[in-house]
Amino acid sequence: MGASSPDLIVHVDTFARVNMVYEVLSVISVIMLLAASLAVLITYNWRVCVLSLAVQYLAAFWLINLDYPLAMAAVKLVVGWMVCAMLGATPVDLKQPDEQLPGRLFRLLASAMVWILVFSIAPSVLQWVPTGMVILWGGLALIGMGLLQIGMTTFAPRIVVGLLTILSGFEILYSVLESSVLVVGLLAIVNLGMALAGSYLMTVSGGLEV
């Protein structure tokens, strides 16, 4: 037996409302992303860095889940956390400069500028990636923070984390456009490969700045 028309309208209306609430709530995930990526950028503690990366993947999962089915979005989360586990298992001593505060302040200011840039260009990017504004903010913010990370260091662990951040941001945007299982699988391999390559480079260089 099919539902009668008024029932169907009520169902559709409820579904739309739930969806809207979910999208509004997803602003929280953008805030989480910003905070986590900032922590990744400014911390000098490797464990905090990896933990922040894990939070970043959780927030990215939330945003990806807006377009992907839960099972496929969960793949991103699981892969992200596996990446964190791999990186976390590698002992790294992030360089502790003598004067920590000015460096951190500089990174904070640079991040603020990236965020301003992201929020100001997001409406224009909407023409390139037709999706919700929340997804655009999240994806672009991660790409921006990742670029900032790789632009400010020559240290292998930070560069690997920066590249993973960029990939994560791209995956948020790309989830709107492509939902092929093979792409999800290959992107998972790329993420895991990046983490493996990063761990290898860190081990080879002894976790020291080059």
Binding site: L163, I166, M194, L201
Partner: peptide
């Protein structure tokens, strides 16, 4: 046994940055 140099890191960065552009 070999040290990680800037060339390898830059290679990794530039080759990885190509990926989003090509996929999009």
């Amino acid at each position: 046994g070999r040290r990680v140099g800037q060339g390898v890191l830059r290679y990794l960065i530039f080759q990885t940055l190509a990926l989003p552009f090509v996929l999009y």
